[in-house]
Design a protein around this nucleic acid. Structure first.
Lengths: 114, 114
DNA sequence: TGTCGTTATATAAATAAAAGCATATCGATT
DNA sequence: AATCGATATGCTTTTATTTATATAACGACA
């Protein structure tokens, strides 16, 4: 019998041998940094601590081949953060596979037979 | 450029509106119950506490349309646990989609371009 | 050169998750 | 009816994770 209350879901991410590198949450963080130009603002928008956001960016900067975010402290506005080409490419690529994955879920979910 | 150290990975699960219902871990637990006929043995094999294993089974029994495990206490051996048809079907179904998902990852992972 | 707001970082506090412990319950077998 | 080992479940303790707090560093600009 087909159970409509039962659905297939999941998540995907990019990883290196060291572990997870980029998933949905970090992509959203990168996008908000790109839009606001501020790590602090991005963290606030996502209701996460600045510390956690900084740790995420720091981890990515150290594990992608090159930094995904360049940050500046001091100066006008107190400081800022901006995405690198690598960061932009990472977002674009993840979204591509994310879209494919959503299609995978959408086509397979209705096929559950329990 | 193609980065061989970067790969696509992920996980899938069955869920109801109440949340996750069946993923890799619970499937393994069910399989070990099926093989050993004992919740305790299954928990020990997976190095998890009996309590945690019991909670998992209890949650599934209450959220699948019908129980996935029937347990008996007392009697010969002190008690036992066995999978229902529903439980067997759930394992089978999850493994089916899991296999499809692994193919998805395998074919897409080499396509990452960062 | 003093101010400002952000980045950067350590340390402490608070939450949440997991594990461990204790104990009751059960029924075939002896 | 006494025994046995597994199931069932509450409660305590421990561990891990997250969040909060404090403080230094920084550089454009007034």
């Amino acid at each position: 019998m087909l159970d409509k209350t039962l659905s297939l879901n999941g998540k995907i991410w990019f990883e290196t041998p060291d572990g997870k590198l980029l998933g949905h949450g970090r992509v959203e963080l990168l996008e908000r940094i790109q839009q606001s130009g501020s790590l602090r603002q991005a963290a606030l928008q996502m209701k996460m601590s600045y510390r956690q956001a900084w740790d995420m960016i720091n981890y990515m900067n150290e594990h992608f081949g090159a930094p995904v975010v360049i940050s500046h402290r001091g100066g006008k506005g107190g400081g800022s953060a901006e995405l690198t080409e690598k960061g932009l490419k990472a977002i674009e690529q993840f979204k591509l596979f994310q879209q494919k994955f959503q299609e995978f879920l959408k086509t397979n979910s209705p096929l559950i037979q329990i």
